[in-house]
Write a protein that binds this DNA or RNA. Sequence first.
DNA 1: CCTCCTCGGAGAATGCCGTTCTCCGGCGGA
DNA 2: TCCGCCGGAGAACGGCATTCTCCGAGGAGG
Lengths: 202, 202
Amino acid sequence: MAVGARDVVVADDVAARAVEAARELVWEAGGPGFTVAQVVARAGTSLKSFYRCFAGKDELLVAMFAQDARRGAEALEAMMAVEPEPLARLQVAVTGLFRFLSVDGRLPYAATLVREHLRLAESRPDQLRHVLDPFVAVFEQAVAGAQAAGAARPGDARRDARILFHVVVSHVHAIVCHQIDDPPGAVAEQLWAFCHAALRRP
Amino acid sequence: MAVGARDVVVADDVAARAVEAARELVWEAGGPGFTVAQVVARAGTSLKSFYRCFAGKDELLVAMFAQDARRGAEALEAMMAVEPEPLARLQVAVTGLFRFLSVDGRLPYAATLVREHLRLAESRPDQLRHVLDPFVAVFEQAVAGAQAAGAARPGDARRDARILFHVVVSHVHAIVCHQIDDPPGAVAEQLWAFCHAALRRP
DNA sequence: CCTCCTCGGAGAATGCCGTTCTCCGGCGGA
DNA sequence: TCCGCCGGAGAACGGCATTCTCCGAGGAGG
């Protein structure tokens, strides 16, 4: 029925605008320090509509993260696509995320992703468990390609991809938390050296 | 002066009891869902005394984490000490943390450490930056030992130790967040295989 | 022994914010 | 025109960190 369909569209629109507003606020304030009130004010909706779309603020964050993960994985794939060599593609997978990190020297958005990730992983485990899967899939594809080309030792591509991904993410964490002072590019290089050694043929 | 000295002692005592109370509450509730009111009630102090010792709840958590890190690093060192071979000691360093994780199948305390860590790293970066250094130091010592014995490729032991530590921690994170279903022991094995490959001589 | 004065305890007050609730106006259908 | 329903605006609530206020105890000085 027409009204129902329109309602659905409207609801999706509210959700999309809320996510967009939240993302803007995170960019501006450099943290999830935004309030639901700010989100609905910027999105031009009401609290009621917001809570009809999302069970709470956390679900809004999950939705935002999921969207980012999908877009980020696509961007990473695009960066890899220009490399002809499988090993070079793997290197891009490992080092590529670091290029997303800093915007004119600040780490505003990535810091939020990182800061909230673990809290959400506990409060909404089922929803967050697969949020980062797009990245793992990209890594797996890169590992499998390198293995097939003989550039990496054979093995369980999915398992190695998961380890690689966690290695990268943990260092992203460390950088945004200022636990590592080296610039992202240098960390990426060190990491690639380590990962390359781990994956090379014996 | 005597009164001043006693005051300091008393303040330390308040701090120590608050940290102890917080740890107990985290164990019991399985999260930092404890309130400051609960802490002071259990510690038998007043809110005023609490806020004279700590600038806020976060500082209490930092103090607790720092203490845990020191104790954990000591425990890890003790576990390593029984191994005669440098490479075996390195293996213990990499896999040992996973043994601290689960207590009768639950991950109550480690989950809190993990969940709060990144948030605190941002809110109190200078205080938290070196909280985990005891672990890194243990790792560095293990890597350097393996290098000296020719069991690992030569290199910057500190850098490799930091990478190893982040690899381990990221997988601990993943486990407590239920992003990995494998039991801790299996993950530890996979990780050691990966790290061993990365560090072995070419 | 009485009087201040200071220090700390108890817990009430404040402020923030997520979440829920209430009321009200507009719009579509009879 | 009247009736319901839906959604908006924002007030109310609840929890909690943090701050503030009051009060009593205990020591120093007369």
